[in-house]
């Protein structure tokens, strides 16, 4: 049978042409991002507008997400000063969760966070916030001194350890924060794409091979549910780490 070979999906499949016009703002990820903002705002405005003592189902859903972030992440991690940071954490959590879940919703099927630009820009915000909080609380000099020189080790060792601590706080932490979210979303989308395209390719072969196509499609569906778990988990981990960094910045010593 003369068939063209199977072309596996690659990073080229993540580049979209603009849907209308020529602007880069009209590509699918950016439109999904705007849509997610509208969706989140609409959901929480509607769910909190008719707030009652006995909540409706919608109000209950909205409030349980809020209390999950406030109690489960904010209060447990940051401690007594947590109330200031709850809006920030809540925005990050819902924003990432919605954008990740776009990856398995039919007809959208693209997690916005699998473009490196979006996690990086969220991380820049987080970076500014936790360093600002720390410098405001301790002052710049004391913050750097506490960070690089911890008590209880022999003096010559500081040569080895101080640059390491500095690099960890200023480069590796934000880098891993962005890369973890990006990598998970990118790999998950690639995996789903591989099984779907592979199943489609096998469908055009002889009838014996069509059985394997069915296996490939069912794996794609099963992995979609697996992906849903990972997407929720990544949103949670991102928010938890932001809370941990803020808690570290507020702590008396590092």
């Amino acid at each position: 049978m003369a068939q063209p070979g199977f072309e596996p999906p690659g990073s080229g499949d993540f580049i979209f042409t603009p849907i209308f016009g020529n602007s880069i703002l009209a590509t699918k990820p950016v439109l999904l991002l705007f849509f997610s903002v509208i969706l989140i705002s609409a959901f929480f405005i509607v769910s909190s507008r008719k707030a009652a003592v006995v909540p409706s189902k919608l109000q209950f859903a909205g409030e349980s997400i809020y209390s999950f972030v406030r109690d489960g992440i904010g209060r447990d991690v940051i401690g007594h000063e947590f109330q200031r940071f709850v809006p920030f954490l809540f925005t990050i959590f819902t924003f990432i969760l919605t954008n990740n879940l776009f990856g398995i919703i039919p007809f959208m099927q693209f997690p916005t966070m699998s473009h490196i630009g979006f996690p990086v820009s969220i991380t820049i915000f987080v970076y500014l916030v936790y360093h600002y909080v720390a410098i405001k609380k301790h002052g710049l000099g004391k913050y750097l001194k506490d960070m690089c020189f911890m008590p209880g080790i022999p003096k010559p060792m500081y040569v080895l350890l101080a640059p390491l601590e500095f690099l960890t706080y200023f480069a590796i932490r934000p880098l891993t924060l962005a890369m973890r979210l990006f990598g998970n979303m990118f790999a998950g989308h690639l995996l789903l794409m591989l099984f779907t395209l592979g199943g489609e390719y096998l469908l055009g072969s002889a009838w014996v091979i069509k059985i394997f196509s069915a296996i490939s499609f069912s794996l794609a569906i099963g992995l979609s549910f697996f992906e849903m778990g990972i997407q929720c988990l990544q949103a949670y981990i991102f928010t938890l780490l932001v809370a941990l960094y803020i808690a570290g910045a507020l702590a008396d010593e590092h």
């Binding site: 390491l164 960890t168 480069a171 590796i172 932490r173 891993t176 780490l241 570290g248």
Partner: peptide
């Protein structure tokens, strides 16, 4: 959980530097 990710960051930082 905090210690877990901090250990990972330290290892990456040390080897990269």
């Amino acid at each position: 959980e905090s210690a877990f990710w901090t250990i990972l960051s330290y290892l990456i930082a040390g080897l990269l530097l």
